[in-house]
Simulated scan of single mutants.
Amino acid sequence: MNPQDRPSAGAPIVTVVQSSPEVGLDRLAGWLPGLDVRLVRADLGEAVPADVADAGAGLIVLGGPMSAYDDVVAPWLPATRALLSASVDAGLPTLAICLGAQLLAVARGGRVQVGAPPGHEGGVIDVRWRPEATGDRLVGALAADAAAHERRSTPMPSMHADAVVELPVGAVWLAASATYPYQAYRVGSAWGVQFHPEAGAQTLRTWADQVEGLDTEAALEEFADREADITRAARALGESFAAVVREHSHG
């Protein structure tokens, strides 16, 4: 993090809920300028805020290897779903990534399929922006950049087998991939993204090594080939979310 990006005294607080030691903020930690990040390691027994007021000015829910319904394996998931739903009701800026996006969908009445039929989606994918993404406060800049370069998509890391198959009522569908339709959506003040804007090469390697049949070296080679575009877009997403949080906190 650059010195100018370090949070100042009184910076808006954003709570980050982490569900796995291998799925942290990674590169996104350096792309949230002007925010005070408070990490909740739910996987280590730290309590997920029971009151949305305790989340601060924003919320990020990260991914993990469990399913969105795996309450026995991950007993903090009911509290996380409740916090996500309360965040929407309260108008709290929220970014839910991969498992987080699935938890958000379930929390607001959508549906997730465990082990969805298209199979595992891993490596670098093309996130295809829908017209609804134009002007969106989180992903609008990514959609505009894709259009400016005469394409409709943005490369992003991905690693999942479960998938959202039904969006919550009132959700805005923002992006798809060739394999799975619901790569990004917005419901109220919350965004769910199935892809992983936070993931760098080493994190992608760690995940890919655990997936049978996935060619880790091929995935990393494609990441390296497209890293400049991935990084530019992922940084823009993080900075856009930080701007939404700062605006909300000053509103």
Rank of each mutant, 00 (worst) to 15 (best):
N2Y: 07
D5N: 09
D5A: 14
R6Q: 13
P7M: 05
P7L: 02
S8G: 15
S8E: 10
A9M: 04
A9D: 10
A9T: 08
G10P: 15
A11G: 07
I13Q: 15
I13S: 10
I13E: 12
V14I: 14
V14Q: 01
T15S: 07
Q18P: 04
V23K: 05
G24T: 14
A29L: 02
A29G: 08
G30L: 06
W31R: 12
L32N: 03
L32I: 02
P33M: 08
L35A: 01
L35Y: 08
L39T: 14
V40I: 15
L44K: 15
G45M: 12
G45K: 12
E46R: 11
A47G: 04
V48E: 02
D51Q: 11
V52N: 09
D54P: 07
A57D: 13
V61K: 05
G63I: 02
G64P: 08
P65L: 02
M66Y: 05
S67L: 06
D70K: 06
D70L: 10
D70C: 11
P75G: 09
W76T: 08
P78N: 13
R81V: 08
A82C: 01
L83I: 11
L83Y: 09
L84G: 07
A86Q: 14
S87V: 04
V88A: 11
G91E: 06
L92E: 01
T94Q: 10
L95E: 00
L99R: 09
G100T: 11
Q102A: 05
L103K: 09
L103H: 05
A105W: 03
V106S: 05
R108A: 14
G109M: 09
G109A: 09
G110E: 13
V112N: 10
V112E: 12
V114Y: 02
V114D: 13
A116I: 06
E121G: 10
G122V: 14
V127F: 02
E132K: 03
D136H: 07
R137G: 01
L138Y: 07
A141E: 13
L142K: 01
A143G: 08
A144R: 00
A147C: 08
A148D: 03
A148K: 02
H149M: 06
H149F: 01
E150R: 13
E150H: 14
R151V: 09
R152F: 02
S153R: 04
P155D: 01
A161S: 07
A163M: 03
A163S: 14
V164T: 15
V164W: 06
L167R: 08
L167G: 13
V169H: 10
V172M: 03
W173Q: 14
L174I: 04
A175Y: 00
S177H: 00
T179W: 00
Y182K: 02
Q183Y: 03
R186Q: 15
R186S: 10
G188D: 09
S189I: 07
Q194A: 15
F195Y: 12
H196G: 00
P197C: 05
E198F: 11
A199H: 01
D209N: 15
Q210H: 11
V211G: 05
E212Q: 13
G213H: 06
T216R: 13
L220S: 11
E222K: 08
F223N: 09
A224M: 00
A224V: 05
A224I: 03
D225G: 15
D229Y: 04
I230L: 13
R232M: 07
A233H: 14
A236Y: 00
L237R: 02
L237T: 06
L237Q: 14
E239W: 04
A242T: 01
V244N: 00
V245S: 02
V245A: 03
R246C: 10
H250T: 15
G251I: 03
